[in-house]
Amino acid sequence: MHYRRVRAAGGTYFFTVNLADRRSDILVRHIDAFRTVVNAVKTRHPFALVAMVVLPEHLHTIWRLPESDADYPLRWSLIKAGFSRRLAAGEVVSVSRHAKRERGIWQRRYWEHQIRDEADLERHVDYIHYNPVKHGWAARAVDWPYSTLHGYIDRGMAMTNWGGEMMNDGVGDYGER
């Protein structure tokens, strides 16, 4: 089945990707394996990683694709498959997934949104970096170790206390359910 997706060469996209078991914590338990796979895919199919946060059961990221490339579905397929192959089998696998020789690690689909302008980008980067606080994984955004917020701070693009006093400001639903 093919899904309708906006694909713009050189586009910048926000993604939410979920595990099939939303009670799992394998993304953070196996963060080194996840990082290795993402870096391997980036090497073979380049993209700029603008922002990312990895939570136990889902992740949010923003990618900027090369000017001549719009194939983010390929990249996600390679990341999901590569990460799954690094984990020992043992998860529950539905009959339909078994018939297709799929693992039961990831939800099949993901949420994507093409970034429209600088304000949209800033809003999504903030959403990503504040997400561990929103979900109760950290008291302050800077306390969550699996976030590009630390790089933003190191480069002087954010203050060390960024998000410390922020409240959930009603930013829209970006598909994290």
Rank of each mutant, 00 (worst) to 15 (best):
V28S: 12
T43V: 03
V28L: 07
R123N: 04
I62P: 04
L74G: 04
F83C: 05
V53H: 01
L49E: 15
T160W: 12
S96D: 10
Y110A: 00
A51I: 08
T43F: 07
G170I: 05
H30M: 06
E102Y: 10
H113A: 00
V125L: 03
A158L: 02
A70Q: 08
L55G: 05
E118S: 09
G172S: 10
A40P: 02
T61F: 08
A33M: 13
G90T: 04
R103T: 15
V133H: 05
I79K: 07
V6G: 01
D32G: 14
P66A: 14
Y13L: 10
P132T: 03
D32A: 15
A99Y: 02
V37Q: 09
R4V: 04
D71R: 14
E102C: 06
W137K: 02
A89E: 11
A81I: 05
A33I: 09
V95R: 13
P145I: 11
D173R: 01
S84H: 07
V125I: 13
K100F: 03
A33L: 15
L87W: 13
R177F: 08
V133C: 11
V95F: 12
T43W: 06
R108W: 10
A139D: 11
H129A: 06
A139R: 15
R35H: 14
I79S: 04
R44Y: 07
A138C: 00
W162D: 08
F34K: 05
W111C: 02
A33V: 12
I128R: 09
V53Q: 01
A48E: 14
G151P: 04
L55E: 06
E112R: 01
